[in-house]
């Protein structure tokens, strides 16, 4: 398959990365090369093969339902771009 310019605009939009037209063209060229490489996969017959998400065949470990964390707001917000009254500030959210 071939990647289109629209595909690049679509995924840049999904990934929330501002991309101007010129950049998108460059990205398109590079991504097309990479997808040519990736296309090799399609030649492999994987019928009946189970996908492998993790190399280790282990199950999920659970934690007990206990509160272990205490308030560290001051430390965490010391590195925040913009806070007021203990809230993280962002440009107006419109629902």
């Amino acid at each position: 398959m071939t990647l289109s310019f629209d595909d690049v605009r679509r995924i840049a939009d999904l990934a929330y990365i501002e991309t101007n037209e010129e950049e998108a063209h460059v990205v398109l060229a590079q991504l097309s090369d990479i997808f040519n490489l990736i296309e090799q996969m399609q030649a492999v017959d994987t019928l009946g093969v189970e996908p492998l998400s993790h190399a280790q065949d282990v199950t999920q470990r659970l934690r007990d339902d206990i509160v272990t964390e205490s308030d560290q707001r001051e430390r965490f917000q010391a590195i925040a771009p913009q806070v007021e009254e203990g809230l993280y500030l962002v440009p107006k959210v419109i629902e």
Partner: peptide, 23 residues
């Protein structure tokens, strides 16, 4: 990020992500 977004996006997930996990 763009490659990853693409291979997970609607309509491509099976052909790329799942195929890659099988291989």
């Amino acid at each position: 990020i763009l490659i990853g977004t693409y291979v997970l996006s609607h309509g491509y997930y099976e052909a790329y992500y799942i195929q890659a996990q099988k291989i």
